[in-house]
């Protein structure tokens, strides 16, 4: 068994879209997610390995369907809930 992030050698993803997309963020919320994650790691709320672990723990279908920063936001929420910093459902207002 391996996790869904472990894609080296996996078949079926098709050709590479080589378009030179250099926009760092495609929406303002992506930039905020990036900055929040940096601050939470710098503040030792969690570490980078915990962050990677949280992304990898996504259900495979969800991981593949999610955009890059959606995965990040999922991981941040997961870790903050696990550590009791926020409660489940607290963001859904």
């Amino acid at each position: 068994m391996a996790r869904i992030n472990d894609v080296g050698g996996l078949q079926g993803f098709g050709p590479i879209d080589t378009a030179d997309d250099t926009e760092p963020f495609h929406a303002d919320w992506e930039a905020r997610v990036f900055a929040l994650n940096s601050a939470l790691i710098a503040g030792k709320v969690y570490n980078l390995d915990e962050f990677r672990d949280a992304i990898e723990s996504m259900a495979p279908a969800d991981y593949l369907a999610a955009s890059y920063y959606e995965r990040w936001f999922f991981a941040i929420r997961t870790l903050l809930e696990r550590k009791g910093v926020i409660e489940a459902g607290e963001l859904d207002v």
Binding site: G14, P15, D21, E23, Y68
Partner: peptide, 14 residues
Amino acid sequence: GPSPSWYKSEAYRS
């Protein structure tokens, strides 16, 4: 610089 989308894609990584 910020990584291009293809670098983060499953297609390239796999």
